[in-house]
Design a protein around this nucleic acid. Sequence first.
DNA 1: CCGCATGTTGACGTTAACGTAAACGTTATC
DNA 2: GATAACGTTTACGTTAACGTCAACATGCGG
Lengths: 129, 129
Amino acid sequence: MTRADYSISDLAAEFDITTRTIRFYEEKGLLQPRRSGSSRIYTPADRTKLKLILRGKRLGFSLDESRSIIEMYDPAHGNTDQYNSLLAKIREKRSQLEQQLHDIEVMMLELREAEDKALEAMAAGGKRK
Amino acid sequence: MTRADYSISDLAAEFDITTRTIRFYEEKGLLQPRRSGSSRIYTPADRTKLKLILRGKRLGFSLDESRSIIEMYDPAHGNTDQYNSLLAKIREKRSQLEQQLHDIEVMMLELREAEDKALEAMAAGGKRK
DNA sequence: CCGCATGTTGACGTTAACGTAAACGTTATC
DNA sequence: GATAACGTTTACGTTAACGTCAACATGCGG
């Protein structure tokens, strides 16, 4: 079991983000660390939330959307509407990803063709010389 | 063979973007349509460039990066450095996509678990009543 | 007590990719 | 010749997600 708490710079270092970023997430209501005096103290649960935010970010979700995602993990949430709309967003992401994968495949093929053409052109140029 | 030229609103309608967007791409040097008087006229080649820009956008490339991509299709480009750096970017995108796909899979699994828990909780609540 | 690391709260700055609006010209059509 | 429909330029506005100060407090080893 993860027991220790974290300072803001602990988390910043671990996830390679700035402390400003972490405070920003708090401003936006995504994190609510407790305080020791004025200093922020993060529990393992807070750390998990942060991970969720960053994963959402990788997937192109906005912070608002990540907030929804986090709420889904909260036991006290039986909000079916929220759940369905989130699921819809995830499915949309999924189809976007499929489109993107296709785009990438095509792009690499095309680039290879462009490369071939360039090589041909260079070879022809050589002959002409 | 595609023969006809296009007006700015033709393209805007076809790709579901605004004319402002198309002009913006021109401002940024990604398109250079010829003019008829002051009006812009787009060739099929221009249209293809636009498609490349939008595909790049889907993949998360910046306009600057899309510009590089477009240049790769220009026969007059034997710039190996440019090619290599672009290829590197594409490979990075590819690994990002793989990461994202993984993230999505995990996320959907987790959500299903969250759903199950919620259902359990509701069932338990029902019994207690 | 000094200096340094680490923390805090504002508050303003930044960037990309357009949106929005004003003010105007051109063409077609009724 | 009035009215759309479509085009133009110029210029300021917008949004998200932080960056970048400044100015200050706090704890601690030496």
